[in-house]
Nucleic acid binder design. Structure first.
Lengths: 346, 346
DNA sequence: TTGAAAGCGCTAACAT
DNA sequence: ATGTTAGCGCTTTCAA
């Protein structure tokens, strides 16, 4: 209806200049308390809302950040966004969202949209298929701060936040050993993704630490899907010496494995223990409850934003070169019935 | 590094004026093909990217929309956002996201952030506790198009997209009757939310259509939580004549009911059939598989955006008064084992 | 088909 | 403590 009130309207009402009003609204030191109070009162009365667009154009800062995720329909990313958003809002930033749908082309489009919109920084989790990082490096070239989370690439000198996948996998495997399992198979994920490679490494390390052999036959190359979990089980069962437990690279893979095992009437956890990774919601509701490693998605989002904030609003004391900065969160184990041979499930 | 190229840079390179370049980039009719081609070539070479902020300030249109959801961590909303985003991108819009965390205060803050950012329109799903709609009406007053989805209020003359809750509940109940269940209990949700009221109504209507009595004792007032499902079962089992099936207002409620039933060794679906609502991911992975009603979240997001687009870019033929516009999606039933007394589960 | 000129609303030098 | 002035990069009349 009425055109929005501007700074000029307030200035007119108070017989001061727009500059004064602007300063008052921004709590500039050199403005008297009186004036500030008066300005705020009139602003309230006129329902003044700052025109961020004009402000951004002039100041070069938009107080918006862009977030690129593979898909908002994946629970994990939903929760990461939740964390980012919570943090961003408390610091006065607005979040632009873009989904890559796992397609590098969309990723590039998203970044262009962000640059075009003038974001002050970008948070991103890589699409599975991304191998060319040119669009991300463009951001760097234009001095737009960038932080990766979860699906990261560590060779570009871009700060990142991840969960300690190695340690998570190590903990999971160690737990299975502690429960008395001795032949532990692993359903692995695509090895060009660092997170999956790290999990495989953690699995191996745990075996070695316990003096158990690492057998290649017990490592099934899967692709993080329910079907791949089923296939892995079929493979394992055909072995002359089948495993007595499975550490799956991800919960859906573990789920597929469990389904196949159930259909073949193999008792979980008695005959076969199962541990997944990600602590998806369904894990605590299926039976037996699925043991898993939580990745702390909300916390990951918060840390990622904090890292980005340091880059967007650098403080003097800044110590470490920021492009060296890596935040690694501790994974949290949730052991349930699927791996409780000694009856110690949660 | 290098400051971003502007329209003026292109103009200089071609010995034309910025106005011409602007028109060429916007595919203005009165510009020669030659010029357009030349402009595009130079733009490419200089890696020119339109400064949306300047463009918005001048034109008054930002090509951004704001989306308010209760929480990105709730799968359903994640998927709605997915749908919105997909549609928005194909039409050249960018999505701003804000989470209310179910708090009306955050909702208001979100709207202020959006107004301030100059969005062209807003999509919103109400926080549970929202009873004062002043902030939403403000948007209307300032001619910022607004569309509600899922958690809507129908008394404000604001267009909305919902799934047909009445019909979904009717279908679910009718299905139970078809499976031979005769005493069907309902675990209801908070009745001040229209979606839950509609589901109760659908349940009642289906009973009546089959000549079955509606018994108040078989309607448990719950609050959409796992615990409330458990409580409902305890209540039902204490009745002199206990029900032989349960239609739960929502999947988590159904899950709670199933857990309680299992602990009491009551066979599902033989002794007690169960149907939920929402078709959450876990439903197909628990055993028995949970029958449920899908709300088509992605489709809901797409329809909501389309409605908003009509308001943001009205076409001449516009027929119906837009504030009367209601889109109702057909729910889709997924019947699984939890209600398959006749052995017809999916 | 193109140019000239003005201005969207705000902020930041520079002045006083 | 406040005013003056200029301009961010773009679009859009109006004019040629």
């Amino acid at each position: 209806m009425n055109p929005r009130a501007t700074i000029a309207d307030i200035a007119k009402a108070l017989n001061v200049t727009p500059a004064t009003v602007s300063r008052a609204l921004n709590d500039h030191p050199g403005i008297s308390q009186e004036t500030k109070k008066a300005v705020r009162k009139v602003a309230e009365k006129l329902q003044y809302k700052r025109n961020k667009i004009a402000s951004s154009l002039r100041s070069g800062r938009s107080h918006m950040i862009g977030v690129i995720i593979p898909s908002a329909a994946i629970n994990f990313f939903g929760e990461v966004v939740h964390g980012i958003e919570a943090m961003a809002n408390t610091y006065g930033y607005t979040v632009l969202l873009y989904q890559s749908n796992e397609l590098p082309d969309y990723e590039r489009k998203g970044i262009e949209a962000f640059v075009s919109a003038g974001v002050d920084g970008v948070l991103a989790s890589l699409a599975k298929g991304t191998v060319d990082f040119g669009h991300y490096l463009d951001l760097k070239r234009h001095n737009v701060p960038l932080v990766f989370f979860d699906r990261v690439n560590d060779e570009l000198g871009i700060p990142s936040v991840v969960v300690d996948d190695f340690r998570g996998a190590y903990t999971a495997t160690e737990h299975l050993i502690g429960q008395g399992y001795r032949r532990i198979g692993h359903i692995a994920g695509q090895q060009h993704l660092k997170i999956f490679k790290d999990r495989l490494a953690g699995y191996k390390a745990a075996l070695e630490a316990s003096g158990l052999p690492v057998e290649e036959k017990l490592i099934y190359q899967g692709d993080v899907s329910i079907e791949s979990g089923r296939r892995a089980v079929r493979h394992f069962l055909e072995l002359p010496e089948r495993p007595d437990a499975i550490f799956a690279v991800e919960d859906y893979t573990a789920l597929g494995a469990m389904k196949e095992l159930k259909e073949r009437k193999i008792q979980i956890p008695e005959e076969m223990g199962v541990v997944g990774f990600a602590n998806e919601v369904f894990g605590e509701h299926i039976s037996p409850g699925l043991s898993s490693i939580d990745q702390q998605p909300a916390q990951m989002g918060k840390e990622a934003f904090k890292l980005l904030l340091e880059m967007m609003e650098p403080r003097k004391e800044a110590v470490v070169a920021l492009d060296q900065k890596r935040v690694t969160l501790a994974p949290i184990a949730f052991f349930r019935q699927s791996s409780a041979r000694n009856g110690e499930g949660a």
